[in-house]
Amino acid sequence: MSGLAAKASNCMQCNVCGAACTAGPVNGLRPREVVQRAAAGDPGLADGPEPWKCVTCYACASQCRAGIDVAELFYELRNEAARRGRIPDAYRAVAKQVLASGCAFPVTRNTARMRQELGLPPFAVSPRGVEELNSLCRAAGLPDLDRHPEAPVDAGAPGKEA
């Protein structure tokens, strides 16, 4: 986590990230607090709901005076959480869906019909493509998706502020 702390240590606590945050009003995310905790090297930061509350709109990063890419910080926290096996169920389901079909959003009957109406050919990722994607993900260090954490991960869903 020292890399995160070094990045976050530039923070002047001006709170402009909090004022720019689009997720905050919905789920109570406080980016200033997250950056402060990252700077202090809080080891429990990746285990909490904060990493998953961010919607990665980059509004904070675009306004940050200290040059900290706050949204990138959230990605790093998510990676750290994933390495610890603490992936929220919803993210786990999406990852599994991608590995199985090659698509984050499944091709439903509705999309198939719309493609037909627009004169587009039927769509599916080829088995070879899916296999390539799987090997790429393995090479990049995607953790075991079937290893579930002991306690369920709180992803900070709206109305469930931690």
Binding site: Q13, C14, N15, V16, C17, G18, A19, A20, C21, G24, G28, R30, R32, E33, A59, Q63, R65
Partner: peptide, 25 residues
């Protein structure tokens, strides 16, 4: 202790400073 992220103008012509509360966020 909070820097506004934007200044906008409302219908009454007042200027709105959007901030995050320094204590509660």
């Amino acid at each position: 202790h909070s820097i506004p992220s934007s200044v906008t103008r409302d219908a009454a012509g007042r200027l709105l400073c959007r901030i995050a509360d320094p204590d509660t966020g």
